[in-house]
Each structure stands twice: as C-alpha cells, then as structure tokens.
Design a protein around this nucleic acid. Sequence first.
DNA 1: TCAGATGTTGCGTAA
DNA 2: CTTACGCAACATCTG
Length: 521
Amino acid sequence: MATALVWFKRDLRIHDHAPLAAAAAFERVLAVYVIEPAWLASPEFDPQHLEFALGCLVELRAGLAARGLPLAVRVGEVRAVFDELQREAGFDHLLSHEETGPGWSYARDRAVADWCRARGVAWDEFPQHGVVRRLLRRTGWAARWQQRMDTAEHPIPAAFRGATVALADLPTLADLSLAPHGRSLQPAGERAGLAVLDSFLAERGGPYRRAISSPLTAESGSSRLSPYLAFGALSLRRAHQASAAEIRCRRAGDAADRAFAYGLAGFSSRLRWHCHFMQKLESEPEIEFRNFSRAHDGLREPHFDRARFDAWCAGQTGYPMVDACMLQLRATGWLNFRMRAMLVSFAAYHLWLHWREPGLFLARQFLDFEAGIHWSQMQMQSGTTGINTLRVYSPTKQALDHDPEGVYIRRWIPALARVPLGYLARPWTMPVEIQRAAGCMIGRDYPAPVVDEATSVKAAKNALYGLRRQTAAREEAAAIVDKHGSRKSGLPNTTPGQPAQRTRPPRGVDTDGVQRELFDF
DNA sequence: TCAGATGTTGCGTAA
DNA sequence: CTTACGCAACATCTG
C-alpha cells in the first residue's frame, strides 16, 4: 500500500502546495512538521521564529484535519522522527519542498537523503519559489522564473485518506526551555498572510515606491509580506499572480488607479529579486560563511572590535538614526529595507566589522530571516562581492532625508526626546548648555559616537578601493601572462608587460553587453 | 535698471 | 538603487 509522508518545512500553508497536491494521489497520507534541535541550536535562530512557526502550525493543523489529514508536530532529529513515524504508520514516499536554507539544513537534507536510500523510501522534492536546483548558468533564469510564476497554482485537495498517528499538543516555547523574546510580532499564519496581501493590493500598495524609503511610512507602505513568504505561509506564486492581476485591472482604470498600479509594479518586480538572491545561496552555499570575492579574505577579520559590535547590537553607537533603527528592529522583528541596509553599511564601513557576526545577530532579529537573501545582502552591503559599487550610507544624511521632523528618532530613543531638531541627527554637536536644557548630556544620557563618521568612512573606502585596484591589477597581469605567456614558455620574462588597458563599458552595461539590474552582482 | 555676484536645483559621473 | 562633486541652467540679491 502506497503511503506518503508530507514533510512540512518552510511551506506552512495549504494553498499552492505541491507536495500536498501530490499526496492526494496516495492511498494513505500522513503529515509532519519537525522542530529540529539543530535549528533551535543554530546561531541564526531566535525564539520569535519558532513562535511564528507555531502560530502557522495551529492553523495548518486545523486546515489539514478538516481534510482528513493528521499533522504530527514532533521535536527531534528528523531521521529519528521519521523512524518513529515509520513504526507508527509506515510510509514509503516522502514528499517535501526543496529548501534553500543555512548550512545545517543543507547537511540535514543530505542525511535525510541517505536515510531514504537506506530505508527504501522514495523522496520527491518539489521546487518552491523560483529557485532552480542544480542550475549551471544564470542565462535564461529570469525567463524560467517568469514561467514558473505564471503556471497555475497547485490545487488544494478536498480530502485525504489520513493515516493514524499520535497527535500531541503543540509545544510552547517554555516546553522547549526557550526564553520569551518580548517582541510584538505580525500575526502568524496563512490566513493572516493572505489578508496582508489583500490589504496591500487593495489599499496600501499605491504609494509603495515612495513609502518604502522612510522607516515611518514603510511601516504600512511596504508590503509586510516578508515573514509569510519566509515561513511559506504565503506562496510566492500567489503573491505574484495576485499582484499581476491587480496591476492589469488598475491599468485599465482612471488616473488614480494607474498610479496605484505603478506602485504595485514596483512591488511586483521585487518578488523576482527575492528568488534572485536565494538562487545565489542555492548555487553557492559557501557564501554563508565565506566572502564572495576571496580577495577580500582577511581584510576585516583581524580587526573585529567586540566593543563596537556590542554598541551596534545594543543601539548604542551614538548615531541616532542607526540606534533608532536597531531599537525598532529589536522591538518588532522588522525594519524596512533601506534602514536594514544602513545598519549593515554602518557595521561594515564605519565600524569595520566583518559581516558574519553582524549577520548572525541580524538573522536573530529578523522575523523574516531568509538565508539566501540574508547572506547575499550582508555581503553586498559589506562590499565583499568585489563587483558592485560600495553603498556607504551616511546615518546623518539618512536621518535628514527620511526623518526630517525627528519623529522616528524621538519615538525610539526617549533620551533624545527634547533635543532640538537641528541637533537630532548629530546630538554630539550640541553645546553643553543645550544638552543641559534638553536633559540629554552626551556620554551620560546618550552615548558619544563610537567612531568619527568622516575618518572611519574614508579609511574603509581606502582599504576596499585599494584592494580592488590591487586585485584588478593582479587579474590584468594574470590575463596578460595567460594570453602571451606561451610564446615565451621556458624563458624568464624580462620585459615589463604593457600597461593595463582600462576600457570602460557604457554606463549600466556590463562587459557582456547585458543590462545590469538593480542590486545585481 | 542692470551687470555681476551669489545661491539653488538638477543631472551626470566617479569612487 | 549611495554619496559627493562638478557643472550648467536658472533664480535671487546687491551696489
């Protein structure tokens, strides 16, 4: 008798779920979600992640039960849990989505593959999102993404012949000896995800392009779908197709509708970037640990300054915009994209910290942590891809541009509540009398800046651009040797090489003549 | 009233 | 979708 186990991972939904749709064809079906000790122990894990997952699981379990499918939620190493389930119900097929996750999940998947081979279980993995497994070249990737996203959703089976398995209550954080995380999170679950999508497409999405920049307007003006996409409570295809449909509809409308469609189109293109970055980790899993550009190895590592790192984590750098952003993130598990980039830029350039530890810290703070996006972004914003231009954010400029009234800074840093607006971006420039009048003595009520903005940025740029010049020179030298070396094989090269030709491709076009897109590297 | 000085804005580009 | 700078075009001020 053919029995399938549907293994839920980062796909906590019923709609557009390939393994679930495939399971409908089996004579008996069971389903499981495994709370893995390796996840809980991983350095990017935070209890908020489990809380959100549990919230999704409550709803998922009810929805599956209504279709006759029991969802077991077990704590343990995956292979041990599978052994249990084999004893309890027996299964010969394992159905799951492909996962592009951190190293521990990659290692676990390989262990599961071994387990399946040893037990004679057939493991069918289905792609999720637009990430392509065993991709050799990026050529044609965008077209494949588009094609996948435009394919019809997998249908939701009406009923299953569910196997009988023991169903315990879902564990709580306390059951797993996890401390409460103290954040106020977005509501978990598939229904919540679909409702957020709906409110964005119907009401909030119009000003998207302008609204995402400021942390004030982004709170409601960005999609807020990231946690649902990260935990799979919302299918990326659903988000893509629903926004495409809304855009088509609004484009046929009046000027206000067309303006709204313009905003939604800005959002829609970002769904592709979501997969674009995940694809990097899928194709090159080492980028979680190592620099994209190995020429950057050792540049920052020996200088890691623990005190600076701690000040950054605590929101105590003395730069109000940086600190306010960190405090919002720590309180809510969310921050808009631009301000995330600013936090990373500050750690990477101003504080000259290697990206790995700040990346782990941020992974724990982001409710929507998605490994592929995360590590690609950490490296890009730190300048270790070696290709894209350095994006060094000025926290004082960002404060002036995106919080001109000081509302955001004062909201998140009570110590600065009475600092006059003119000093809010740079409170250390306040004369002592004004500090006294504002009830904010620098160094006592609010920290003095950990580093000087101008000198630290200059040093960082010098180091990175200096390295690039060297690297470029080395590569050019190597290319010249490669090209001309054979004619002189066996003889020492005594004549100096030609000076390197510096030909610059037209702006926005790389050497292959391919348009370089936003964020591309 | 005007010429020249000074200021503002917007764009292109280098790093 | 970074910042800083230079430049040009245009605006405003001033003697």
